[in-house]
Simulated scan of single mutants.
Amino acid sequence: MSDRADSAGDGATADADADADVTDVDAAERRSVVRERYAGIATRASTCCDDGDASDVGSDRIGYATEQIEAVEDGADLGLGCGNPTAIAALEPGETVLDLGSGGGFDCFLAAREVGPEGRVIGVDMTPEMVERARENVERNDAEAVEFRLGEIEHLPVGDASVDVILSNCVINLSPEKPQVFREAFRVLRPGGRLAVSDVVRTAPFPDDVRLDPDSVTGCVAGASSIEEIESFLGDAGFVDVAVEPKAGSESFIRDWDDDRDPSEYVVAATIEGRKPRS
């Protein structure tokens, strides 16, 4: 495979059952293999992604304009996304933006250009090597309004009601606790705040060789939930104006994620949006 990267009672049981349908790789193992894989990507000495060559990374194929790709210095775009969340976020000057699973910081630096010097961008990633790399990229991109924090997206190191917009790019599918991710997203958003995510959703049942394969989890395939599950997770967390829209043509790049199978038989890229009510 190619390199990709607490409520109680009946509600919690339903959450667990819904996510358990996605994969039989347990939560601890999922976190471990994800952290190991993306640590390796972050520290790799020489790859196509390290030189920022957009033609190799393929960011143009998943929705980024050439101007966006060229605006960020080498080393931040690791080619790990499945869409362009900044394109759907409608960011405004002065806003505070949070990126879940920020990797090398590519989307954070693009967001910083949109929110301007009065805005603020926070990236959270659970892999120390990724956070270290992203922090090095801050200086390269002269991005004083961007900071990176080590933490899990299920337990965000961010205060209540402190951000205006949440971004994420092909990361939430990696979480073994997606309902908790959306509850945390709701907690940290200000009233009226919004969530704009690019991710993959499951379109067909996984065969056992995919469902039980840790590489398929880390490769943004076997951890994907269905559209109905994502909508339910968001609604249960409190979000309104929920929309999950498959991305036409995404099979063209999803096929390249695995040399042995065609992941587009089971998953499709999608935009995921929701809003926290103002009151």
Rank of each mutant, 00 (worst) to 15 (best):
P277H: 04
I272A: 02
V197Y: 12
T271H: 09
F239N: 08
S250A: 04
F186N: 06
E265C: 01
A269W: 03
R194K: 08
A185I: 10
V267C: 08
Y266K: 08
G192E: 09
A269S: 12
T203P: 00
V210D: 01
D259C: 00
S175T: 10
T203K: 07
E245V: 12
L189N: 02
S198N: 11
E273W: 10
G238D: 13
Y266H: 10
D241F: 13
I272F: 05
R278F: 14
S252N: 13
S198L: 09
G274I: 02
F253Q: 06
G238S: 10
D199R: 08
I272H: 00
D208K: 07
E228T: 15
F186G: 07
F253L: 05
Q180W: 11
K276Q: 00
V242W: 11
R194A: 11
V240T: 15
G249Q: 05
P246V: 03
D262V: 00
D259V: 08
G238R: 08
V221E: 07
V240S: 11
P277F: 06
K247H: 11
G192Q: 05
S226D: 11
L189M: 02
A237G: 05
A248Q: 12
P277K: 03
V268K: 01
A237N: 08
E177I: 13
S198P: 08
D241G: 12
G238W: 14
P263Q: 06
V200S: 02
L212P: 08
K178Q: 14
E228N: 13
A224T: 08
C220K: 05
N173I: 15
R255P: 01
R190Q: 12
I254S: 01
F206S: 00
K178Y: 09
R190Y: 02
W257Y: 14
D209E: 13
G235C: 12
V267G: 05
A237K: 04
F239E: 06
S250E: 03
A185C: 06
D258A: 09
A185D: 05
R211C: 07
I227D: 07
A269C: 07
F233C: 04
P179S: 02
P176M: 10
R183Q: 05
E184R: 05
E265N: 01
R183A: 10
E273L: 13
P214Q: 03
A196L: 08
A270L: 09
E251S: 06
E265L: 02
W257D: 00
D256Y: 08
V197W: 12
A196S: 14
V240F: 12
D262L: 00
R278K: 11
P277S: 01
K276L: 00
I230G: 03
D256M: 07
L189W: 02
R255Y: 03
E231G: 13
D209L: 10
L234W: 14
A243T: 15
L234H: 14
D260G: 06
G192F: 13
D215F: 10
V201P: 06
C220S: 12
V244C: 01
R275F: 05
E245R: 08
E251L: 05
D241W: 07
G235M: 12
V181S: 01
Y266M: 06
K247V: 15
R194S: 10
E265Y: 00
E265M: 04
V181Q: 05
F239M: 04
G238C: 09
I272G: 01
D260N: 07
A222D: 09
V217S: 00
W257P: 00
